[in-house]
Amino acid sequence: MNVVLLGATKGIGRAVARLLALRGDRLVLLGRDPEDLGRSAADLDVRAGRSVVAATVPCDLADPAGFEPALAAAAAALGRIDAVIVTAADFATQEALEADLERCRSLLTINFAHTVVFCEHARRFLLPHGGTLCVVSSVAGDRGRKPVVLYGASKAGLSAYLEGLDHRYRSAGLKVVCIKPGFVKTSMTAGLRPPPFAGEPAQVARDIVRAIDRGTPVVYTPWPWRFVMHVIRRLPRGVMRRVGF
């Protein structure tokens, strides 16, 4: 499989890229920092024991003008793109976002508007021959909740977009996979107190790769979050208003 990853240098994306590299997929890494991309490419090549990274291409979710050229460069390096995986995103606590509205605007823009625009470009590269678009959203988008009002809203929009996209293009050969991780222990969440069922990037990565292989439209990971969110989605508003999560 020929895979383009945006956000493979860190956290969940790093773990996904390692799994794909080990099974022999060919990869193109997109990311902000060329030097960091180079180090991740070396890591994947050494772990796989052969060259698996076809190219690294600078691409920043904050700069939509770069999306199309970056994907075109990836397509040129791979020949054809079978899957595009987006794990990159912004995160900040509710308190930090409330305190700094500029920071808030930038997070909402990157996590929703720019991620959607990136997906729209990716869709054009994938549609002609079919393929998979896998995007990491979050359980935070399933319900408006006190600790993640703003971050959750950005992910709610993203999840809704991904569902619509899947309905609209599945028959044309574009499979859209929306990943909804619960709490995952990465540097993004470092310093936060892990709740029960907190996951490890490697475990989440296995679920993501399986979802891509099967074309599962929505995946909660680690798996207990599926049941946790099933309950939370059904809680009456009056209850949600009183509880802390």
């Binding site: 240098t9 860190k10 790093r14 960091d36 540097s187 470092a190 310093g191 107190r193 892990p194």
Partner: peptide, 21 residues
């Protein structure tokens, strides 16, 4: 979070900066 401990159990309150970088 907030606690850093040795394997034998000695611990201290401290901030731990975890990062890929």
């Amino acid at each position: 979070p907030g606690v850093v401990a040795g394997w034998g159990g000695i611990s201290t309150l401290a901030v731990e900066h975890e990062s890929e970088d």
